[in-house]
Design a binder for these strands. Structure first.
Lengths: 151, 151
DNA sequence: CTTGAAAAGAACTGCCT
DNA sequence: AGGCAGTTCTTTTCAAG
């Protein structure tokens, strides 16, 4: 395991606030030199703590106005069934996130669609036809707020 | 609204695949010139379609091994209650995402904790004490897979 | 819309404390 | 470990076809 000290945590906070911040900016913000910041960022990257960045495209602006969260309970389980289901569900373009979870449901999906009619098409033609799908629960996203969480 | 043509969509796909790709790489991938790719990326940024990148820190590596999704149904509603609840819940450091949703639940939360014991502390001391919390459902994250979704 | 080139800035290296 | 000064590389901007 790599040691992560308070300076590293401060760097992670700075990068969480601005993923495009460079070593110079991060260093200035923390009061350490650019090469020092650079070395630490590189160490964190090499250790896999920082692993690439993600560009959140504006779905609504791209014509995908509807986001729905599905909770899915499989009718039949077993290792083969789970893998089969995961492979099938990740292949659906409208599915953004597949979460294997423990609790009332077995899987949670984040699905985007152009509108409710489009979502119904995805649900009926793509999701409900998957092998072993049992109970399905849906929640339509109204607003979403993200924080960086504890670092 | 800004016009987004197929080339822009291709650029968004390229950036979704690699957020750190520069104008030169994107241009080469699409068969357009570097300055042209650069201008388009800048236009998309200025238009807000691309709005910064997000660095997904490795929670497990930082000592937050447990991620739980909570579905929350409020006991009492009304505009004031909703705003009150949202403000209180977003102030909890362990809460990463607050989604106001339509369906069986009113809110969905993504909560991180060091371990199950730590999660129980957050749930009892932070979540359950919030005003108007009614029914709560929990799902513990096992594995998560993300795709870029349709662009 | 392209090429080419120069200016600005960031990444990386080695040396010193 | 961390800072300083320098080298190399990329990005960004501009001029011209």
């Amino acid at each position: 395991m790599t040691e992560i000290d308070d300076t590293d945590r401060a760097i992670l906070r700075a990068l969480a606030a601005d993923a495009y911040a460079n070593a110079g900016e991060v260093g200035r913000a923390l009061g350490i030199s650019q090469p020092n910041a650079w070395r630490r960022i590189k160490r964190l990257s090499d250790a896999g703590v920082i692993d690439g960045a993600h560009v959140p495209a504006d779905r609504a602006g791209l014509g995908f106005g509807v986001t729905v969260f599905l909770g899915i309970k499989l009718a039949t389980k077993g290792a083969t069934r789970l893998e089969e289901f995961e492979r099938a569900v990740i292949a659906i373009p409208e599915v953004q996130v597949v979460q294997h979870v423990l609790g009332l449901f077995d899987y949670r999906l984040r699905v985007v669609a152009r509108d409710i009619a489009d979502f119904e098409r995805v649900l009926r033609r793509r999701i409900m036809v998957l092998p072993a799908v049992g109970q399905v629960e849906a929640n339509v996203l109204l607003t979403e707020e993200r924080r960086d969480g504890p670092i």
